[in-house]
């Protein structure tokens, strides 16, 4: 009976593994984007001050200074954080849906070959995927423990188990798939991708 359940579950791994990895990275990018939010607010203030200084010089554009008022800045900052997060999802999480599992040893061999190639911007995605999936695993564990906060022992155990499991079973696959995807692309993600993923990866570490 138990064997049958295991077999059935094995048959649908090709659906749930990519979905789970994609979700793990999405949770990680959100944890990172949430940290970025505050910094974005400061950046929005600088940009806003810059444009206010320009727009206020002509009577035609002066009303724009009022339009982006003090209240709207928080909204803008959060909107920038959201756009940042969704772009990172598109660059990191969505490609994970194309994961096609091979034997672990084969995946390791392929990964070694890909990493040893000429170092380039192609390594940005897997590196970001690593940090973001660690942040994602920590965020999932935190959510579990917080949900079970009235049962501290069970909560602590469940969170630690989930964290260990995610580090061991999902995060490495996400990194591998990211490496594989980045290597298969015709062009590297470029400086724009680096500008999106770089700060987010640092923020992912800060979110831990």
């Amino acid at each position: 009976m138990e064997l049958r359940v295991t077999e059935r579950v094995s048959k649908i791994r090709w659906i749930f593994l990519p979905l789970g990895m994609c979700a793990l990275v999405a949770v990680g990018t959100h944890a990172a984007a949430d940290v970025v939010g505050d910094k974005v607010l400061f950046a929005v203030d600088r940009v806003d001050a810059f444009f206010d200084a320009i727009f206020s010089s002509w009577s035609v554009t002066a009303p724009l200074v009022d339009l982006v008022g003090l209240g709207e800045r928080t909204f803008f900052a959060r909107a920038v954080a959201l756009a940042w997060e969704l772009s990172a999802d598109a660059l990191l999480a969505i490609p994970l849906l194309g994961y096609d599992e091979r034997a672990a040893a084969d995946e390791l061999t392929i990964a070694r070959v890909l990493v040893k190639r000429r170092p380039s911007l192609r390594l940005v995605q897997p590196a970001a995927a690593l940090l973001v999936s660690i942040a994602g695993a920590a965020a999932v564990a935190r959510l579990l423990q917080g949900t079970l906060l009235h049962y501290p022992l069970i909560g602590g155990f469940v969170a630690a188990t989930a964290l260990f499991g995610l580090f061991l079973l999902l995060a490495p696959r996400a990194v591998f798939r990211s490496l594989e995807h980045a290597s298969a692309q015709k062009t590297a993600i470029g400086l724009l991708g680096l500008a999106i993923l770089g700060p987010l990866a640092i923020a992912a570490v800060a979110s831990l």
């Binding site: 295991t6 791994r13 789970g20 949770v27 959510l143 995610l166 079973l169």
Partner: peptide, 24 residues
């Protein structure tokens, strides 16, 4: 695969977290 049930639970947890707790 060695631990399909564990993987299923872990993936379900990630999907739950992403589904309810992220803007995506």
């Amino acid at each position: 695969p060695r631990l399909p049930l564990v993987e299923l639970v872990l993936c379900a947890l990630c999907l739950w977290a992403a589904w309810y707790h992220t803007p995506a």
